[in-house]
Computed example of a mutant assay.
Amino acid sequence: MKRSFYQFVLSFRGGAKEDSFAVFAEYMFNDLSFPKDETSFDTLSRYIEDKADPNMPSVVFDELYQLYEERFN
């Protein structure tokens, strides 16, 4: 079964404060409304653009999603 994007990104939590993936993961973890079971790029991208914290920039999301796709597709 394919892991959700949320589950994948949590693996970056606890990294260095300068690590953009770790920062993104921490803010995502603290965002109680983040779509935790979602795998779709379009749905997640819309959420990031419309509702996410500014510390979760779309450019970092795009990089993380590319890694997610490479790993699970």
Results as ranks from 00 to 15, higher is better:
residue 1 M to Q: 10
residue 1 M to Y: 09
residue 1 M to P: 05
residue 2 K to W: 02
residue 2 K to R: 15
residue 3 R to V: 09
residue 3 R to I: 09
residue 4 S to I: 06
residue 5 F to S: 05
residue 5 F to H: 05
residue 5 F to V: 06
residue 5 F to I: 08
residue 6 Y to P: 04
residue 7 Q to K: 14
residue 8 F to M: 10
residue 8 F to Y: 15
residue 8 F to G: 01
residue 9 V to R: 02
residue 9 V to I: 14
residue 9 V to T: 15
residue 10 L to I: 08
residue 10 L to P: 01
residue 11 S to Q: 15
residue 11 S to P: 00
residue 12 F to T: 10
residue 12 F to C: 07
residue 12 F to A: 11
residue 14 G to H: 10
residue 14 G to N: 11
residue 14 G to M: 11
residue 14 G to Q: 11
residue 16 A to M: 11
residue 16 A to H: 13
residue 16 A to I: 07
residue 16 A to Q: 11
residue 18 E to L: 11
residue 18 E to V: 11
residue 19 D to I: 07
residue 21 F to A: 12
residue 21 F to I: 03
residue 21 F to W: 05
residue 21 F to R: 12
residue 21 F to K: 14
residue 22 A to H: 11
residue 24 F to V: 07
residue 24 F to G: 01
residue 24 F to E: 03
residue 24 F to M: 08
residue 25 A to W: 03
residue 27 Y to A: 00
residue 27 Y to V: 01
residue 29 F to T: 04
residue 31 D to W: 00
residue 31 D to S: 12
residue 31 D to C: 05
residue 32 L to E: 15
residue 33 S to H: 10
residue 35 P to V: 04
residue 35 P to N: 10
residue 35 P to G: 07
residue 36 K to P: 00
residue 38 E to R: 10
residue 39 T to A: 07
residue 39 T to S: 10
residue 39 T to Q: 12
residue 39 T to K: 14
residue 41 F to W: 12
residue 42 D to Y: 10
residue 42 D to V: 13
residue 43 T to E: 13
residue 43 T to A: 13
residue 44 L to C: 12
residue 45 S to K: 14
residue 46 R to C: 09
residue 46 R to D: 13
residue 48 I to W: 00
residue 49 E to R: 15
residue 49 E to D: 11
residue 50 D to A: 11
residue 51 K to T: 01
residue 51 K to V: 03
residue 51 K to D: 07
residue 52 A to N: 02
residue 53 D to N: 15
residue 53 D to R: 03
residue 55 N to Y: 07
residue 55 N to M: 10
residue 55 N to S: 08
residue 57 P to R: 05
residue 57 P to W: 00
residue 57 P to S: 06
residue 58 S to M: 10
residue 58 S to H: 09
residue 58 S to N: 09
residue 60 V to A: 05
residue 60 V to E: 01
residue 60 V to H: 01
residue 60 V to Q: 02
residue 61 F to V: 08
residue 62 D to N: 15
residue 62 D to W: 00
residue 62 D to S: 12
residue 63 E to V: 06
residue 63 E to S: 11
residue 64 L to F: 07
residue 64 L to D: 00
residue 64 L to Y: 03
residue 65 Y to P: 02
residue 65 Y to L: 04
residue 66 Q to D: 13
residue 67 L to C: 06
residue 67 L to G: 01
residue 67 L to R: 15
residue 68 Y to V: 06
residue 68 Y to L: 01
residue 69 E to G: 00
residue 70 E to F: 09
residue 70 E to N: 14
residue 71 R to N: 03
residue 71 R to W: 05
residue 72 F to G: 03
residue 72 F to R: 00
residue 72 F to I: 06
residue 73 N to S: 14
residue 73 N to E: 14
residue 73 N to T: 14
residue 73 N to F: 06
